[in-house]
């Protein structure tokens, strides 16, 4: 472990003070094993208390700290600075309104989640114990349940940027997760919602979401399966 000098360029925006976002450079010394979050903490705690960003778990599970570093969407907490060298450029996720500095408005993102009815819908009474679900049936949805709703996928999606009505990869992945859950009876309702020009058909299989996903979820593949399901359902 050694201290190194780094240059950190951060897109700043303080509402009520700044007319528009602008870059600010911090030249600081940090440990070479630091993460992006360590760097932000160092700046916030030691240099400029006004810097704002979201963070909580530090262990890549809460999804708070997705942001853009040197052009790539990452979780700040799990990303070591050595991946980028000594010059860092940190900005908020694209496609969302900036509230302040690196903090963006995620309310529209969560509202889209609600639109696809993200809960098990049952036509049958639940059993006394658990539903039987085979490991193979679980495998269908297993990876999709790892989504932490960090919004890195939506922020990387060119189909999402110009169209705020598009459900986006995270909500569609959630639709997949329930439609393909062997216990669920709500597929028809959800297929009606995603079978729309702002639903699954707005996905143009660009794969940016897959590259951006910190959980390495093959989102585009699941959305393709969802498209097939929608087509099958209408036949």
């Amino acid at each position: 472990m050694a201290m190194i000098d780094i240059s950190v360029k951060i897109l700043r925006y303080q509402p009520g003070k700044d007319e528009k976002p602008h870059w600010q450079v911090f030249n600081i010394a940090v440990e070479d094993e630091s993460t992006i979050l360590d760097v932000l903490n160092e700046i916030h705690w030691q240099h400029d208390g006004t810097l704002a960003y979201r963070r909580s778990c530090r262990s890549s599970i809460c999804g708070s700290c997705a942001m853009k570093v040197n052009g790539r969407n990452v979780l700040a907490c799990e990303t070591p600075i050595h991946r980028f060298g000594r010059k860092l450029k940190i900005e908020p996720l694209s496609g969302f309104d900036i509230i302040k500095d690196l903090v963006v408005d995620l309310d529209p993102f969560f509202a889209k989640l609600k639109r696809i009815r993200p809960y098990l819908i049952l036509d049958k009474p639940a059993p006394d114990k658990e539903f039987v679900q085979s490991p193979e049936q679980l495998e269908q949805i297993g990876e999709s349940t790892l989504c932490i709703l960090c919004a890195a996928c939506s922020a990387a999606c060119p189909s999402s940027w110009p169209n705020s009505e598009y459900l986006g990869p995270a909500a569609l992945l959630k639709a997949y997760r329930f439609i393909f859950d062997s216990r669920d009876d709500g597929a028809d309702q959800r297929i009606e919602i995603v079978n729309d020009k702002n639903g699954v058909w707005r996905c143009h299989t660009i794969f940016n979401c897959v590259e951006a996903c910190p959980k390495k979820i093959k989102i585009t593949e699941y959305l393709s399966r969802l498209k097939v399901k929608v087509v099958e359902n209408s036949l």
Partner: peptide, 17 residues
Amino acid sequence: YEFEHMGVPFSRTADGR
């Protein structure tokens, strides 16, 4: 069991429990 009925994706035994 309530959690399972809500849709929690518990890992399963070979016989689906």
